[in-house]
Amino acid sequence: MTEMVRAENVHKSFGSLEVLKGVDLTVPQGGVSCVLGPSGSGKSTFLRCINHLEKINAGRILVDGDLVGYRERGGKLHEMSERDVARQRQSIGMVFQRFNLFPHMTVLDNVMEAPCRVKREKKAEVRDRALSLLDRVGLAAKVDNYPAQLSGGQQQRVAIARALAMRPKLMLFDEPTSALDPELVGEVLEVMKGLARDGMTMIVVTHEIGFAREVADEVVFMDGGVVVEKGSPSEVIANPQQERTKAFLSKVL
């Protein structure tokens, strides 16, 4: 299987605060990686580095074989222009903790916006695809509603559909269920399970241990800006080797 994501020795600092201190991760095509860890461990920051929302200070990240945010020419790194970074991001979908739907657009317009404006695809085609995506996440009846009229779980499902409308080869989930009422978590996780079954490559930062156990091919436990432990769910969750992993899991399980 080919590698979709390869992160090597990634470092990231905000001023004098070093958030990532050498993170490595590889995700094969179609693989699902769940990143667990206490808050402040750098897991969200790491995710944001993968689509260059944050610039890394050292190390390198490759998505589908291409360096993220840089181009290597004559053994020297060149920063990519904003336009090239934007083009790279088109194939990387991202779902945020706080949904970040565009409140001034209807659900359908939210999903259609990027394919129409960024990729300049034909409106009718995009519309059909958007409707079928919204149907897939169970929101066919809400296409003309505005985000404020939806529950958190519904909004997050729209956000997933919006990301999928760009036909990404990789999906990043940044704590997608952390801002939801407990009874709404399930519906979002169901959609994500469906995606994983269909072979989408996914990196999921989450606190949902049950989801990680069921869906993940690999579970990564981060703490203090480094990967403490990684392996299959049965290794990391059921039988952790590191003290820090054990301590964390004992609190959340």
Binding site: N51, L53, E82, R83, A86, R87, R89, Q90, I92, G93, M94, F96, R98, N100, L101, F102, E113, A114, R117, V118, K119, A159, R162, A163, M166
Partner: peptide, 12 residues
């Protein structure tokens, strides 16, 4: 978060 979401979709 709004501009982040937009940028993440590849908007200029």
């Amino acid at each position: 978060g709004q501009s982040e979401a937009a940028v993440a979709l590849g908007m200029s």
